[in-house]
């Protein structure tokens, strides 16, 4: 399978990438690691006229622990996040989830920014950043802006990014010793989650997010509220599927996905030490 023809621009700075996006408009797509975009292009589900390759933009692959936040450049690869001892100490859930993406070859190419900008509800990292209340730093012709993860994932493969904007940094809080868990249910090694549940313990209970339970990654709002109101983890997790409209496919019916959301959320809360 070969992508449809496209024009190629190699950007060597984020300013160059933004200039190229400005000149090609919404016919252009940014290419980072390419492990979400290129498979779509090979299947001709995506046929951008122009690819702006940001894979060589220097200085966007950093992982910095800064006080009570971790700042990660959008081009940090999954493998870098997975293997960073500093990140593992500061925000272990993110390091763990990065190591659950695809397989080692995929993690060697895929980037955090690319995964978030792709905004796939079935991907691991969007839900993790959502559960962490991460902040996404976006650059564009109207200047830099910060978007809360809760506002970033808008719909099916749709984010708050405008066509002329670029995600440049992701910030998540240092969670340190707080309990956490990612429960990923797959039918095959290396696969996307049939359903996944992230939990991160915090003062009033836990923050949670769900993978593949709708058109976008979802916060487990009902579960969080129940925990804050004093419910047990077992009772709260029973609300995990409330209001969700997951899809049905070969691997799971809608009802089975709802069942998985409840079970996996319960397991994630227990593993995160939330009683």
């Amino acid at each position: 399978m070969i992508p449809a023809p496209f024009g190629y621009v190699r950007a060597t700075s984020s300013d160059e990438a933004l200039a190229a996006l400005a000149s090609h408009g919404d016919e252009a797509k940014l290419l980072a690691g390419g492990h979400s975009l290129l498979p779509l292009m090979k299947l001709r589900l995506a046929t951008p006229a122009v690819l702006v390759d940001v894979g060589r933009v220097p200085d966007l692959g950093y992982i910095r622990v800064e006080g009570d936040e971790v700042a990660i450049g959008a081009l940090a690869r999954h493998r870098d996040i997975e293997r960073s001892a500093e990140l593992r100490a500061a925000c272990p859930v993110l390091g763990h989830v990065a190591g659950q993406v695809g397989d080692p070859q995929v993690r060697a190419r895929g980037t955090l920014g690319g995964s978030l900008a792709h905004g796939d509800a079935a991907s691991d990292l969007p839900a993790a950043v959502l559960a962490l209340d991460g902040t996404l730093v976006v650059d564009g012709p109207r200047g830099r802006r910060e978007v809360a993860a809760r506002e970033f994932f808008v719909g099916f493969l749709e984010t708050a990014l405008e066509p002329d904007e670029m995600l440049v940094e992701v910030r998540v809080p240092v969670t340190g010793d707080a309990g956490w868990s990612y429960q990923k249910f797959t039918r095959r090694a290396q696969d996307w989650a049939v359903v996944g549940a992230v939990a991160v313990a915090r003062g009033d209970g836990a923050a949670g997010a769900l993978v593949n339970m709708g058109s976008r990654p979802l916060r487990a709002d009902a579960v969080e509220q129940a925990l804050a109101d004093g419910a047990t983890a077992a009772d709260a997790s029973g609300l995990a599927a409330a209001g969700t409209e997951p899809s049905a496919d070969l691997h799971a019916s809608t009802d089975y996905r709802r069942h998985l959301a409840r079970v996996l959320t319960g397991r994630a809360l227990v593993a995160a030490g939330v009683a």
Binding site: M1, G34, L38, K42, Q105, V106, Q190
Partner: peptide, 26 residues
Amino acid sequence: DTSNCGACTVLLDGEAVKSCTVLAAQ
């Protein structure tokens, strides 16, 4: 040809990658 099976794995700057999902330009 869908970055699943790994038959196309090569080392790119020393690291295993799936060459069916990397552009020659990259």
